[in-house]
């Protein structure tokens, strides 16, 4: 537990200094932690497992956009858990305003439950990324789904690396915003 926290703090400090490798290690380590935090609490609220992964992704985006609120004297675990809790509450509020359709009604068209890292159904995954328009959409898709790095993306889309970075950052902020606007 203490070792894990020490790793997370080190990676977080490196990530904030701009180290993408450390950042990826950190987020990959945090994702299962966030998932377990959300799942533990979600069960009692009847949140479906596809929604759990939604909250996990929303939490990871919030960690990214709000990492300026972490100060290095503070442990990473409770900071992340508090963000996850906030995002779960937001998701439950969104659900509260929708008519609840029991899952049995369309169980036959639902694909079988997929693995932990793959909670979103393909149509939902497409839906999330499709809120992005133009260059942001192309850049985020190239880097996330196609796995290209910044340089490859710049070459493929004939953009400068700086423009790719800007489009990526704005795209991630827009994804986070899209989750929030579902709440209105």
């Amino acid at each position: 537990m203490r070792e894990r926290e020490a790793d997370w703090s080190d990676w977080m400090a490196s990530a904030i200094a701009g180290d993408a490798g450390a950042y990826r290690r950190l987020l990959s380590a945090l994702a299962p932690f966030v998932r377990s935090v959300v799942r533990n609490r979600a069960a009692s609220f009847g949140l479906a497992s596809a929604d759990v992964e939604d909250v996990v992704q929303e939490t990871l985006l919030a960690i990214h956009l709000k990492r300026g609120t972490w100060d290095d004297s503070q442990p990473v675990g409770p900071w992340v858990a508090a963000i996850a809790r906030n995002k779960l509450i937001d998701a439950l509020r969104r659900k509260g305003r929708r008519v609840h359709v029991p899952v049995e009604d369309f169980a036959e068209v639902l694909p079988a439950e997929t693995g932990d890292d793959n909670g979103l159904r393909p149509d939902e995954a497409e839906k999330l990324i499709s809120v992005l328009k133009g260059r942001q959409h192309e850049v985020v898709k190239a880097i996330s789904v196609d796995g290209a790095d910044i340089g490859e993306t710049a070459k493929k889309l004939s953009m400068s690396e700086g423009a790719v970075r800007v489009a990526l950052h704005r795209g991630l902020a827009a994804l986070s915003q899209a989750y929030r606007s579902f709440r209105e």
Partner: peptide, 17 residues
């Protein structure tokens, strides 16, 4: 988008302060 794809995109944005 799978969560690991999202993580890749977020990590690539590490350089934004």
């Amino acid at each position: 988008m799978r969560t690991e794809d999202l993580i890749r995109a977020i990590a690539a944005d590490a350089a934004t302060p």
